[in-house]
Amino acid sequence: MSVELNHTIVHVKNRWDAARDVGGVLGLPEASAYGPFVELKLDNAVSLDFMDTEGEIHGQHYAFLVSEQEFDLILGRLRHDGRQWWADPFKRHPNEVNHEDGGRGLYWEGPDGHWLEIITRPYGSGD
């Protein structure tokens, strides 16, 4: 048996708004209700399960491996929506793309302080 990530819970103020925001930028199908969660399914059978949370939310980091074509589409959606992105998680390089491991990557702020990232090559895969 192999070990695989099946889902992770994303704490947010409004689960539907957050799922629509993340899914919209990533170009994913509409999320669906699943018990107290709004489930956003990714292409590799992992889901982000958004859950309404009262009180302080501690932002998490979520990184998505995407194709070069998907990267272009996601970057286009960020631009179209007038959203800010950075080449680095420290916000030193706004509106830039990094080229780690011979691919491309960028970061943007998602709902409730979560830090979202797209990369076209896994870290450590380059020359």
Rank of each mutant, 00 (worst) to 15 (best):
34 Y>N: 13
49 D>C: 06
72 D>V: 05
63 A>K: 01
60 Q>S: 14
126 G>S: 05
43 D>N: 15
110 G>A: 08
91 K>L: 11
42 L>S: 09
110 G>P: 05
100 E>M: 11
60 Q>N: 14
23 G>W: 11
27 G>F: 05
123 Y>E: 13
48 L>A: 07
74 I>N: 09
105 G>Q: 04
125 S>K: 10
90 F>E: 06
9 I>Q: 07
15 R>G: 01
20 R>K: 12
39 E>D: 13
9 I>C: 03
105 G>L: 00
125 S>H: 07
50 F>S: 05
11 H>S: 12
42 L>G: 08
121 R>V: 13
94 P>H: 09
63 A>Q: 07
99 H>Y: 06
58 H>G: 04
104 R>I: 09
50 F>T: 09
32 S>N: 10
52 D>S: 08
6 N>I: 12
13 K>R: 15
11 H>F: 14
56 E>L: 14
79 R>A: 12
120 T>K: 04
89 P>A: 12
42 L>N: 03
102 G>M: 07
54 E>C: 03
65 L>C: 10
117 E>W: 08
97 V>S: 10
14 N>S: 15
74 I>E: 06
73 L>W: 09
9 I>D: 03
3 V>C: 05
84 Q>W: 08
82 G>H: 11
73 L>I: 05
53 T>L: 09
36 P>Q: 11
18 A>N: 08
75 L>D: 04
121 R>K: 15
127 D>G: 12
35 G>I: 03
82 G>Y: 02
50 F>C: 09
92 R>M: 09
114 H>Y: 00
27 G>Q: 06
45 A>G: 05
64 F>T: 02
75 L>I: 09
36 P>T: 06
92 R>T: 11
41 K>R: 06
127 D>C: 00
94 P>C: 10
118 I>F: 07
86 W>L: 01
83 R>D: 03
46 V>S: 01
31 A>Q: 03
25 V>I: 15
107 Y>M: 11
56 E>F: 11
54 E>H: 08
89 P>E: 11
122 P>A: 05
111 P>L: 08
97 V>M: 08
51 M>H: 12
99 H>P: 04
49 D>K: 05
90 F>M: 04
